[in-house]
């Protein structure tokens, strides 16, 4: 769920935009270096952004019976790296605002921070940690994408709680309120997205293991997740 256009007070909107802009600049710098070494990556990033946009339009069944859409945060972070996800996410979120009126321009920075910065870094960190602890590839992918999804919504709850603290309980009560509301839909969604990403990586490992090895996601001797 994106924060809607105009929902955040102006100082919060500007603050989150500045915070996210620094990560986008870092991401662009990293991508530029990568393109200098591997020029074919230039096209890959644009195509990957279109892929993320289309992915967000897919309907995913949720345990509560409702439907939602995958964020693609964890999948993108594992495939393209967390740093590259900030510029890709900026384009995807901008297009969602301009083509679907989903999210917004004034809340672009806040949505970018939760979905394209916190989510991908959590996914990459958890994946690396789980692989370091010798967990299986499938479990590592599941944990990385599920927790990335959850952390995205925890961040959104924190952003909303900071902007609208509870008159009685302050930030913590407001955070509990927003997190509880989101949890009803987001915990089942995170589990669904984790399972979906494992199925995706299983199919990739089966039909295209070389690409996964090239991205250092699969060790040379591991073929199937």
């Amino acid at each position: 769920m994106h924060i809607m256009e105009g929902f955040l007070p102006v100082e919060h909107a500007i603050g989150w935009t500045l915070a996210s802009a620094s990560f986008v600049a870092w991401g662009l710098h990293a991508i530029k270096k990568r393109i200098d070494e591997q020029p074919e990556q230039r096209m890959l990033l644009g195509v990957a952004a279109a892929f993320s946009f289309v992915l967000s339009a897919l309907k995913l069944p949720s345990v509560t019976g409702s439907c939602s859409h995958p964020t693609g945060t964890g999948l993108g972070a594992l495939l393209f790296g967390p740093v590259a996800m900030a510029p890709i996410g900026a384009v995807v979120l901008l297009f969602q605002a301009l083509l679907l009126a989903h999210g917004g321009l004034t809340t672009l920075g806040a949505n970018l921070f939760s979905m394209a910065i916190v989510g991908p870094f959590v996914a990459a960190g958890i994946f690396r940690l789980a692989r370091g602890l010798k967990r299986s590839f499938a479990l590592s992918v599941f944990l990385a994408t599920s927790l990335a999804d959850l952390m995205t919504y925890v961040t959104t709850s924190a952003q909303l709680a900071w902007a609208f603290p509870d008159p009685l309980g302050g930030f913590s009560a407001s955070f509990a309120k927003f997190a509880t509301i989101f949890a009803i839909t987001q915990i089942p969604l995170a589990i669904s997205e984790g399972l979906l990403t494992v199925v995706i990586f299983n199919a990739l490992a089966r039909f295209n293991p070389q690409e996964l090895r090239d991205m250092k996601l699969l060790p040379a001797n591991e073929v199937r997740a």
């Binding site: 096209m43 195509v47 892929f51 289309v54 995913l60 069944p61 995706i200 299983n202 990739l204």
Partner: peptide, 25 residues
Amino acid sequence: LTIRSLGGLTANLTLQVWQRAHALH
């Protein structure tokens, strides 16, 4: 079945990302 089909769809689409990017390059 939905999760399984979506997984297959997205995996195929992921492969297309590389193929189309390579063709564009």
